[in-house]
Nucleic acid binder design. Structure first.
Length: 139
DNA sequence: ACTGTGATTGTTGCT
DNA sequence: AGCAACAATCACAGT
């Protein structure tokens, strides 16, 4: 048996229908551009705001969330997230638009809430800057 | 002991 | 308009 030990993706066969791109997460460099314009400023630590709302999960993630439960329920031995991800991706592509509809609907709702959170977040940021400005002005 | 990684697709955000 | 990074998850490996 294949000891699905975490990393080793337990998918030795069926590469035909696997158009996975090389977009490995972590270092995605599509263009041969050595310097990423979007690169985080190494100078000064890019402190992440704890209040910054995280991006809303896409329909795929919404589906994946439920899929993980099902997958783990049927494969409690599988502990590799990669396996669930691949299985979920394959299943996701197998789903029809109608079946993805409810997930997309939820995703849309999530997005709406996200926009609201972002709005409040930006507002807070502005407020924070305002306080800072006020403090400086007061000096 | 803690943090990063690995894989999936979609969405968002900046240039 | 297009590319790049990041969203959850969970166990393991490395520092």
């Amino acid at each position: 048996m294949k000891t699905a030990k975490g990393k080793g993706a337990a998918r030795p066969s069926k590469e035909s229908l696997k158009p996975v791109d090389d977009r490995k997460v972590g270092k995605r460099k599509a263009s041969g551009k050595p310097e990423k314009s979007r690169a985080p400023k190494k100078e000064k630590k890019a402190k992440k705001d704890p209040n910054k709302p995280k991006r809303p999960p896409s329909a795929f993630f919404v589906f994946l969330e439920e899929f993980r439960k099902t997958f783990k329920a049927e494969n409690p031995l599988v502990k590799a997230v990669s396996v669930v991800g691949k299985a979920g991706g394959e299943k996701w592509k197998s789903l029809s638009s109608a079946e993805k509809a409810p997930y997309e609907a939820k995703a849309a709702k999530r997005k709406a809430e996200y926009e609201k959170l972002i709005k409040a977040y930006e507002k807070k940021q502005v407020r924070n800057l305002c306080q800072l400005f006020c403090c400086v002005w007061h000096l």
